[in-house]
């Protein structure tokens, strides 16, 4: 059955992900991925895309690289996963390196310093907005809010290591949402 679908070449896989990697300015890579993988190339249908997204958001690691691994694996196995992920990472890595070299050379220039102050201030605004948007979308309930506050205080204020925090808090948070049988729910 699957043989009917044309086999996607590794170079095609790389170029599609590299195009996303080089054009996705300003974050929001998921939207770029959907446009390329579902609308344009039709490698995945909407359900397949959502299923892949669900896994990449739950597993550790960046959503964009996890999506590359999962979609690359589905289409071409281990080699596909590698090629798609490299395509996603490399263009941005080159550009950020170029920006970084410029930054290291110029950062003590007072004009550059004030630009960077403004850029960093704006980046905080972006991060706050993304955090609130995601938080709002999850429609956090009162018991969830408790976990938000506990994690913020432990990691943000007291600098408890992330590993310790996750080991302590994650099982509890998952337990709160554990699947209930009819008997338990009654």
């Amino acid at each position: 059955m699957n043989d009917a679908a044309p086999r996607i070449s590794l170079s095609k896989l790389f170029s599609v992900f590299a195009l996303i990697g080089v054009t996705s300015f300003g974050g929001g890579i998921v939207a770029y991925l959907r446009r390329a993988l579902v609308d344009k190339e039709k490698w995945l249908d909407e359900d397949g895309f959502m299923a892949a997204l669900e896994i990449s958001q739950t597993l550790p690691g960046l959503n964009s690289t996890n999506m590359s691994v999962i979609v690359g694996r589905k289409l071409r196995g281990p080699a596909g996963a590698l090629v798609a992920t490299l395509g996603m990472i490399l263009p941005g890595a080159f550009i950020v390196t170029a920006l970084g070299f410029t930054y290291v050379a110029l950062r003590h220039d007072p004009k550059v310093a004030v630009v960077l102050t403004g850029v960093a201030a704006a980046a905080v605004g972006l991060l706050v907005q993304v955090t609130l948007k995601i938080g709002w979308k999850q429609l956090i309930r009162p018991q969830d809010l408790l976990f938000v506050v506990v994690v913020f205080v432990l990691v943000g204020i007291f600098h408890v290591s992330l590993l310790v925090t996750l080991i302590a808090v994650a099982p509890l948070a998952i337990w709160v949402h554990r699947p209930r049988t009819e008997k338990e729910a009654a």
Partner: peptide
């Protein structure tokens, strides 16, 4: 279960 933890980390 993980959703509120992620939000807490992002706030931090």
């Amino acid at each position: 279960g993980m959703a509120p933890i992620v939000i807490g980390l992002m706030l931090a």
